[in-house]
Design a protein around this nucleic acid. Structure first.
Length: 224
DNA sequence: AGCCAGGCTACCG
DNA sequence: CGGTAGCATGGC
């Protein structure tokens, strides 16, 4: 009996594999978990994780395409890029003044890593990287066992009365991670579930937890 | 026209 | 500590 895992099962049965994180020029890669495939794809996930803050991913893709045509979808090109040129490229994603600064801060950090996987704590010390963005980078960019919580995750769990409205990011992350770890022993399988679960939550969230009042038509409510 | 989007920082009490 | 204004473009 593991209600968090039950939610995952029900949603996966309804939506199927999502294929996150999508890569530009390639797209979603359902049932293929061998991503990212190289350093540029890792970096692209990092960049997308920052750009998607409070924005639709369609807008992020436009920004990434803008960088791609400038031959600047890699960390070294961006590090030496003029900030105004960067702002112009990422404008479709919104908050372009802030995000340009965040990206330049991150790129300096990223290039200093020399390919080493960053710690969550180190990521959180970079301006513009909060908990969700850090987990996004680690989960989808580096295939680390860090569950990514987002606004939809909280709305759903609050609606199902699994967590309190006042629950913090870390509370929800800990609940989901501990529940799934108890149920799934194989780490490779666990990683796949972390990646699919968050993506599916976003899918489900867009359907039933976007417009108020939330949860109208949410079939999860029939189970819990 | 108004609300929402795959959040975070700075600043307030 | 917790709470909130500000950030900005784009889609519906």
């Amino acid at each position: 009996m593991n209600k968090i895992y039950n939610i995952y099962e029900i949603l996966y049965e309804n939506y199927g594999p999502q294929g996150w994180w999508p890569i530009t020029g390639y797209g979603y890669h359902k049932l293929d978990y061998n991503f990212p495939r190289d350093k540029n794809e890792i970096f692209e996930v990092c960049l997308g994780s920052i750009l998607t803050q409070n924005t639709t991913f369609a807008s992020v893709v436009k920004s990434l395409e803008n960088l791609h045509v400038k031959n600047a979808l890699n960390s070294h090109a961006i590090e030496s890029m003029d900030i105004n040129e960067l702002k112009e490229a990422i404008k479709p994603s919104g908050y372009f003044n802030q995000k340009a600064r965040y990206i330049l801060e991150f790129v300096k950090f990223y290039n200093s890593l020399g390919g080493v996987i960053p710690s969550r704590e180190a990521l959180l010390n970079v301006l513009g990287i909060g908990e969700e963005t850090a987990d996004s980078i680690l989960l989808y960019g580096y295939n680390q066992l860090q569950f990514k919580v987002d606004a939809y995750t909280k709305r759903i769990l609050v609606e199902l009365d699994f967590v309190d409205e006042k629950a913090k990011y870390g509370d929800i992350k800990a609940l989901i991670e501990s529940s799934l770890k108890k149920y799934v022993e194989d780490e490779r399988e666990l990683l796949k579930i972390y990646q699919e679960f968050h993506a599916i939550i976003v899918n489900h969230g867009k359907n039933f937890y976007s417009k108020r009042p939330y949860a109208r038509g949410c079939f999860l409510k029939d189970f819990f």
